[in-house]
Design a protein around this nucleic acid. Structure first.
Lengths: 162, 162
DNA sequence: CGCAAAATCATCCAAAAGAATGACGACAAC
DNA sequence: GTTGTCGTCATTCTTTTGGATGATTTTGCG
């Protein structure tokens, strides 16, 4: 079964299940209320209706309150980020040639460092995932890395990528 | 399904679960009120009391919901300021607190960025691999990352790690 | 042209990583 | 003394990654 979509299907399944459970629970709850209502021959409906109304209203009020009360402070935090202004960055050609890393491999290395998955890289470069895997395999081989995180680390210290 | 979305699945799941708990709790509350009403035969003049009770309870619930649901929404204005090129590096405490990243999680983040596998990290910290996985899962959740490479990338741009 | 390097894709398999969930003890805060 | 956070660990499952290997197509170059 080929996993086609990128966003986790597992999570979506869980979300759907949660909604389902929620709905069923709600239905059962209503049913129970109904039955007890009949059992005790209570006709008066105003309590549920007004209770629910009050609940909903004050829930909304509470949510609104919570939101407005707390969203005051974290608005503007100015960070001082040492932005290096004088670095267009060029990969170390010597080291590149030394490791016999091809342009395509370097390109993929960059995308790996950007945090993309093989599938995302494949989509980005319009090639198959298998191709990306062979490229990255050879890349790891040349870099002496066993994991992509290690490859990124090594490449950074070798000034192959920013 | 376009493979474009990158929003955290964790948060969505939490939101669903919160809503679920919330709904069930509300229903149970009504049920309990109903039952007690029958048991003690308190019929008259109870509407104001229970209405107030429901209002107060649901207000509190709503506030809590609003707070937990909107817990971490950064919205930071980033201002780039050229800084000294040779700094000993200190992690951005503000950002760290903002994302609610614990010291242990930061430690593991650093080891991930160093290219270590979960097993190696576990051996390095004398904990089980499962613990490392738990930490990194929560870390990814807080960082909004789905892969460790992405976590590293995000952490670097947020100045959490060198 | 013909060759070699680079790029492409596949398949099978193993290992690592990640997701979801539940649990427990320590410890600080209220 | 309850509450909340943190750190710890486990289990089950799915997904991703990596290894090994072979094959086909481009492409640049002498």
């Amino acid at each position: 079964m080929p996993p086609t979509t990128e966003s986790s299907p597992h999570s979506r399944r869980r979300a759907f299940r949660d909604i389902l459970v929620y709905g069923i629970a709600g239905g059962l709850l209503i049913l129970i209320l109904k039955l007890t209502e009949y059992r005790f021959l209570v006709i008066e409906h105003s309590f549920e209706i007004y209770g629910g109304l009050i609940a909903a209203l004050f829930s909304a009020l509470g949510i609104w309150l919570g939101l407005t009360l707390t969203r005051k402070k974290p608005s503007v935090i100015i960070k001082e980020i040492p932005a290096s202004p004088s670095e267009p960055f060029v990969p170390d050609e010597a080291r590149l040639a030394q490791l016999a890393i091809t342009p395509r491999e370097l390109e993929i290395l960059g995308l790996i460092a950007a945090g993309l998955s093989n599938r995302e890289i494949a989509a980005h470069l319009f090639v198959s995932e298998n191709t990306v895997k062979t490229h990255s395999s050879r890349l790891f081989d040349k870099l002496g890395a066993r994991r992509r995180t290690q490859a990124v680390q090594l490449a950074k210290t070798s000034r192959l990528i920013p």
